[in-house]
Simulated scan of single mutants.
Amino acid sequence: MNTSLKKILLGEQGLVVIFVLAFAIVAVFVPNFLTERNMLGLLQSVVTIGIVACTMMLCLASRDFDLSVGSTVAFSGMIAVMASNATGSILLGLIAALICGSLVGLINGVVIARFRINALITTLATMQIVRGFALISSDGRAVGINDPNFYQLALSKFLGVPTPIWVMLVLFIAFGFILNRTVFGKNILAMGGNPEASRLAGVNVVSMRIWIFALQGLVCAIAGILLASRITSGQPNAATGLELSVISACVLGGVSLAGGRAAMTGVIVGVLIMGIAENVMNLLNIQAFYQYVVRGLILLLAVLLDNLRSGAAGRKG
Rank of each mutant, 00 (worst) to 15 (best):
F172D: 03
M82I: 06
L43T: 07
V30Q: 08
A190E: 00
M168D: 09
P31Y: 08
F175M: 04
K186E: 02
V167C: 06
T126V: 06
N285I: 03
R37E: 15
F23L: 14
R63N: 10
L299I: 13
F133W: 12
G50E: 11
M57S: 09
L301E: 06
F289M: 11
Q44N: 14
L10M: 08
V246Q: 00
I18G: 07
V130N: 06
V294W: 07
A197I: 05
I8W: 09
G217I: 03
L15G: 13
I8A: 02
I95Y: 11
S310P: 00
C59D: 06
F33M: 12
G311S: 14
L94T: 11
S310R: 13
L284T: 04
A228S: 15
L34A: 14
V110P: 06
L300D: 05
F289Y: 15
N180T: 12
A228R: 10
L218I: 04
T87W: 08
K7C: 01
P162A: 10
Y290S: 08
I112Q: 04
A97M: 09
L43P: 09
N146D: 14
L58M: 15
L153M: 13
F133N: 04
P195M: 04
V46Y: 05
S233E: 14
V293Q: 06
L308M: 15
N2H: 12
Y292H: 13
M127L: 14
L304H: 09
F158K: 07
I99T: 12
T35N: 11
M127C: 04
I165W: 13
V293C: 08
S62M: 03
N204K: 14
G217V: 03
C220H: 01
F213V: 00
L153I: 15
S138M: 05
E12T: 10
Q291A: 05
I8S: 05
F150H: 01
D147G: 02
F158P: 03
R63W: 00
T72W: 06
G193H: 05
F115W: 06
F184N: 03
I121S: 00
V16S: 08
G241I: 05
A96C: 13
V219K: 09
V170I: 15
M168S: 08
G160E: 11
L34M: 15
L169S: 12
A96S: 15
L67G: 09
V69K: 04
W211G: 09
I165F: 11
N2G: 15
V170N: 03
A288S: 15
C250L: 01
I145A: 04
V81K: 07
V167R: 03
I231P: 10
S233R: 13
K157P: 05
A223G: 09
L10T: 10
R37A: 14
I121M: 12
N149M: 14
G241M: 03
G160V: 11
L91H: 06
A214G: 01
P162I: 09
F23V: 03
Q13R: 11
F184V: 10
L67K: 10
F75T: 10
S89Y: 11
I99Y: 13
M191A: 04
S138W: 01
L155V: 06
N180F: 00
R114C: 04
A154V: 02
A228V: 07
L124I: 12
Y290G: 02
L189S: 00
F177Y: 13
V170T: 08
Q44T: 13
G70S: 09
A80K: 09
T163F: 15
